[in-house]
Amino acid sequence: MIEAHALTKRYGERTAVTELSFTVRPGVVTGFLGPNGAGKSTTMRMILGLDAPTSGWVRVNGKEYARHRAPLYEVGAMLEARAVHTGRSAYHHLLALAATTGIPRRRVEEVIDIVGLREVAHKRAGGFSLGMGQRLGIASALLGDPATLVLDEPVNGLDPEGIRWIRTLLKDLAAQGRTVLLSSHLMSEMALTAEHLVVIGRGRLMADMTVADFVKGAGGSVRVRTDEADRLRRLLAAPGVAVTSERSEVLEVTGLSSDRIGRTAADAGIALAELTPQQASLEEAFMEMTRDAVEYQAPVREREGQPA
């Protein structure tokens, strides 16, 4: 459980995080979403007691992080970039962290196997690829078998196989009753991994809701392809449901989840050739929500001849 209350961080004139309040609950993967520079890393550093809040507070498992006597057992963290000395091997990096709290060597070997770094464990971390560095970061987060995990951009730099691996790992960890918070600037990634979302922009809270609600709010559409489009269209008709069609066998449905559409079709014995939630609309909703909050934005030129 992570609770932030009116968390604010100022660096001189610049305010990185403003009056941020949210709760990250155990049992589900919570995505911490925002454009680059939104204050995600700052917030995560405050969760871990690395940066002190200017005002407000944040507690992990009921206490400020720094007050935990055995922090690695409470919270496993993977911080932005690589918090690893480049001259040291992965094995010794983990061994040194483990030693601070008496975690046995056996557990170090265990997490090396969990993240699949066995073959390179004794090589200098400076020579690691981005993906290997991410795996090492995850290994250090898992060392104390903690009830809470805080991961900053964990999929960054992973190959598709690695991304799938971490998605499964995080869902498993959450299913075991742990609190899992991971940050990302990619909405599409979050839609696949997280169940709950905390969205921030320019250091302010923009949304704190389930991914399902976010999708609903975004008016996410579902693309359906079937030979019996007309029949399905009639079956789906209901208040709050909009169905459009550009080609005779393809429907764009808003207001219904793909699960519901699939079931309706199955009940009616309609064969579907395609049933696809449109992720693009999700990404658009996120961009729409954070548009004003994007710190660095390429200027968009008005197209000539287009009325303002």
Binding site: Y65, A77, L79, A83, V84, T100, T101, S140
Partner: peptide, 12 residues
């Protein structure tokens, strides 16, 4: 190298 953040997270 950024190691200090891992160090201080382990020893707040």
């Amino acid at each position: 190298t950024g190691m200090i953040r891992a160090t201080f997270a382990a020893v707040p």
